[in-house]
């Protein structure tokens, strides 16, 4: 967060020194994009806050903490796809999963789907790419995430 603020401030400063008019244009462009997306963003935040009422970190850990069979991988893929959990919650949660005896493949599938697949953000993604492309990207990413997870599960004991 602070790194981002520092980078933005530095970029703005340099840009202002070089060309004040262009910088102002950049800020206006950015704010215009932000304004047109503010309400869809707000909806995502509300939906996620409500969804986490039912999917608490504890219940997720309970759901995925079992043995690393096919069901746990499938459950990890579904939960990872539909939830939107920020990284600073997701990584400790994954560490907890592993401690509870979940397989590495399950943790990896959960993490990778969390990163690459976003069901709640689909409407937002469709605004940019159209529904067909957004759905396809998410479907392919889901498949990729499962491959990554299974690959890590297989490779873990060899490395």
């Amino acid at each position: 967060m602070w790194v981002l603020a520092a980078v933005t401030a530095a970029a703005l400063l340099v840009s202002t020194i070089v060309n004040r008019k262009k910088t102002w244009e950049a800020i206006k462009k950015g704010m215009r994009m932000l304004l047109s997306l503010a309400f869809p963003f707000l909806t995502v935040l509300i939906v996620v806050s409500l969804a986490l009422m039912f999917l608490t970190p504890e219940s997720i850990a309970g759901l995925l903490g079992g043995a690393g069979d096919g069901w746990a991988v499938a459950a990890a893929a579904v939960v990872g796809s539909v939830t939107l959990i920020p990284g600073f919650v997701a990584f400790p949660l994954c560490a907890l999963l592993l401690q509870m005896g979940a397989a590495y493949s399950v943790a990896a599938v959960f993490l990778t789907t969390l990163m690459m697949v976003g069901v709640v953000t689909l409407p937002l993604e469709a605004k940019y790419f159209g529904w067909k492309t957004a759905l396809l990207r998410n479907a392919l990413s889901l498949a990729a995430a499962v491959v990554v997870g299974l690959g890590i599960g297989l490779a873990w004991s060899f490395v």
Partner: peptide, 28 residues
């Protein structure tokens, strides 16, 4: 849920405007 929303919103309000300014700078 309200607490979580407040947290997400705060993160969003601090973070996303910076992100869009950077995209704007990149664009220009």
């Amino acid at each position: 849920a309200a607490g979580r929303f407040a947290y997400f919103f705060l993160e969003f309000a601090m973070f996303v405007p910076l992100l869009f300014i950077l995209v704007g700078l990149f664009d220009v």
